[in-house]
Nucleic acid binder design. Sequence first.
DNA 1: CGGATTTGTGGAACCGGTTCCCTACCCGGT
DNA 2: ACCGGGTAGGGAACCGGTTCCACAAATCCG
Lengths: 342, 342
Amino acid sequence: MPAIGDVARLAGVSKSTASRALSGRGYVAEETRLRVEEAAQRIGYIASPDAASLVTGRTKNVGVVIPFVNRWFFGEVLEGAERALLSAGYDLTLYNLAIGGPERDRVFDFFLARKRVDAVIAVGVDLDEREVDTITSRGKPILALGGTAPGAPRLAIDDRAAAGLATQHLIQLGHTRIAHLAGAGAGSAARSVQAMRTAGFQDRMSAAGLVPVGEPSGVIEADMTLPGGYSAGLQLLGHPGARPTAVFAASDEIAFGVMRAAERLGIAVPSALSIIGFDGHEHAELFGLTTIEQYPEEQGRLAVETVMEWLGEGYGEVDLATAGVPLATRLVVRSSTTAAPR
Amino acid sequence: MPAIGDVARLAGVSKSTASRALSGRGYVAEETRLRVEEAAQRIGYIASPDAASLVTGRTKNVGVVIPFVNRWFFGEVLEGAERALLSAGYDLTLYNLAIGGPERDRVFDFFLARKRVDAVIAVGVDLDEREVDTITSRGKPILALGGTAPGAPRLAIDDRAAAGLATQHLIQLGHTRIAHLAGAGAGSAARSVQAMRTAGFQDRMSAAGLVPVGEPSGVIEADMTLPGGYSAGLQLLGHPGARPTAVFAASDEIAFGVMRAAERLGIAVPSALSIIGFDGHEHAELFGLTTIEQYPEEQGRLAVETVMEWLGEGYGEVDLATAGVPLATRLVVRSSTTAAPR
DNA sequence: CGGATTTGTGGAACCGGTTCCCTACCCGGT
DNA sequence: ACCGGGTAGGGAACCGGTTCCACAAATCCG
């Protein structure tokens, strides 16, 4: 393994000049630079990132904390982030944070606190203050993409407004018997994504003077998956008497499950039941699912871009104001929703 | 940021003793160790992994190269690998390798060649010799999980046999008009997963004296996704005259697409069309899909375990023999396949 | 009881870069 | 002819650990 000293010797310069020539910092004569580069090339020199980050403090590596990789939304975010980091010359270290428990503490205390990342992007996770502090106290900025992180900049869609929009769509179609399938864990963090979507639903319902169909609370929890939506759907639609004419599902995956449940029960969609989802899943078009699109891959890209900006200059001076503008969402109407049956 | 010197001073010992106390290597009196640990605790000391790996050459980090994160199979592998690495105290650096192009070279030459990983796990990718060489020539072992990597140890199911098993299942049910929807790119690498599955299909077909339904070659390519299976399915099933009575799809996602296409065309499954998939997708049960299960999460775990073993002792002495035993698969019969209509 | 281990600790070199500081030259301006 | 600033490049310190070596004290063993 050739080191920079070998390159220097071969090129007939000092280590410092070789370093400057290869990194492009400081004054180096063009001719010298070429000579050094050629020497490096010749002996197959590859700089040790460890040595470099030991002295510079930068690792060219960003940690991404994510609760699932195999939910469509998160997978897209991850792909977007990965692509963006790659082209910025950064590595992406993945921390798959299962819901809670001791594993979670380990990620923060053992992995993230160690210095191998320049910044952390937390996707769809609700962090507590201690967790945020563990990261920031080591001088690493943290960005919350969706989810919440007290005291940290946040990038997110306006879940409450978007959920309101979805609900409004159903109301405008004349539905009055509407149910909401919330993602499980809606109650956990007060300002969590789940809680906000439910709140947006309730906003519009009460504004329209309607009372939700379903469990006492008017909200049914479902696992954020297709099977989760399926079993919640069976339960919701199983009693012919008290059946809603429209459902707002907190995710497209839940919505697909409900569609499947309706099919199983012989309930026609959309004529007997309108369904609207949330996410803009890649299968939504094929299944004709009306949904609120968000653009997770783009969100991942954007998160990286934001972090890169921080890492570029100021550093340490993280601009909390960036958190201002909510990310884009769009209502896309397809064939799973229609006017209420009379 | 306190360094180990600060800990040493506070504990009244030398740097070397502090290092030994904290890492547990070498002789340190129990009483001293406690004193050092307490000092470290008190000032919130966290070791710099950069400094450590600079001297030891180990990074406690494994690179995972994967072509997609948002295909079910790959997502599962990734989750399994991540969990296993986490509990081994290793980081996972993700390289999302889009099919080809300059991006791909960049991953190998720029990212993987640099020393920040102790080993590489390549999932479902076909590497060429140069790529394998870039990694191994730097002393890092590489493991191919599925996919191929000339000269590198490989961990994989027996795709050919498993595809044969799937085909056999259809033949035993009395089907004679059978089509195969292969994953796109089947022709690329001669010994690729796709090619092997197709070969397994053809093995059994010709052994039974049957000729496949479909394009001239008897094999139809589909994108390895639900929409891909859908459009291939529409095409395959669109001509009532030349319709197969059974389909072997190269992945469950394709199979779901075909189911959807059949539904659209009013073809009853399984009475008019039997469908078998491949993977053991988490939705297979809900949709009653007969399939060949493999266990991707387990595969990820296994890959990590193998690599950990290499990293444990010998190092550099990678045992090629490990590659021997194919991973587990299992035929799971559900309601999407039945006896051929007479 | 003396030599051979085993145990415990400190000093210093070292991993491989980056960067600070110092010197030297060249060039333009006065 | 002298001075100042821009350009080039060398020497050495430094980042923060780990490890080799030397040495001392404690322990063992016949």
